[in-house]
């Protein structure tokens, strides 16, 4: 197991790194910057990646990720254990901020043509940390669940989640009835849910790296 420089030089950081996310959040709520740094180290990469996927440029993704993490730090965004894991919550904060950023900027053209495989291949695996390499494989496996959906189902899901479009906006965009859009969202999510069933913990949490 790799030990970061921070952990090696700071016993308190090493102790915090052994805590589960939910325990770590109690320290963050008490305004412990070391705990917050551990939280960032765990989820900052996924947060930045999601922000980049939604806003489509590095500067915008940095703004979104920074805004989201500082919102979490300042307790403007509250973690609710009942709503899911800390990671899911952090990413939902990032997603909301990214969608807000798109709306503020008026650039809401759907970004459905991003080739995630090309993004992955552009970075040789030798340049990645072990954690990044695992995330890369996880991303590929999970993306397989999306790609296995019929196009009409994956499109409405991506427009809603990554584009921030409402079902009525999607219906207008794709010239289809509202009921059809919601029906495709339902079918798509149900198929994804069935495909990832093995990755769901007994308490209903998604287990991803």
């Amino acid at each position: 197991m790799l030990i970061s420089m921070a952990a090696a030089s700071n016993p308190e950081t090493a102790r915090l790194e052994r805590l589960a996310d939910e325990e770590l959040m109690a320290h963050v709520d008490r305004k412990d910057p070391l705990a917050f740094e551990v939280l960032y180290d765990r989820h900052g990469g996924a947060a930045y990646s999601l922000a980049y996927r939604i806003v489509g440029d590095r500067s915008g993704a940095e703004d979104v990720a920074q805004e989201a993490f500082l919102s979490i730090w300042r307790s403007n965004a509250r973690f609710d254990r009942a709503r899911g894991s800390v990671r899911s919550w952090v990413l939902s904060v990032v997603r909301n901020r990214a969608i807000d950023s798109l709306r503020r900027g008026g650039s809401r053209a759907p970004k459905l043509d991003q080739d995630d495989d090309a993004v992955l291949e552009a970075r040789p695996s030798g340049e990645m940390t072990e954690d990044e390499a695992i995330r890369r494989e996880t991303s590929r496996e999970l993306r397989g669940a999306i790609e296995s959906l019929p196009d009409d189902q994956s499109k409405v899901i991506e427009l809603a989640y990554f584009g921030g479009f409402s079902h009525s906006e999607i219906a207008e965009m794709l010239s289809m009835p509202l009921g059809t859009v919601k029906g495709r969202m339902r079918l798509g999510l149900e198929k994804i849910r069935v495909q990832i069933a093995e990755s769901i913990s007994p308490d209903g949490m998604l287990e991803t790296t």
Partner: peptide, 21 residues
Amino acid sequence: LPAVDVLPATVAPQPPPPELK
């Protein structure tokens, strides 16, 4: 909800710039 929670994990990982942290 886990079917929605999985969507961010389908995104290609991008290393955040160190300056961000």
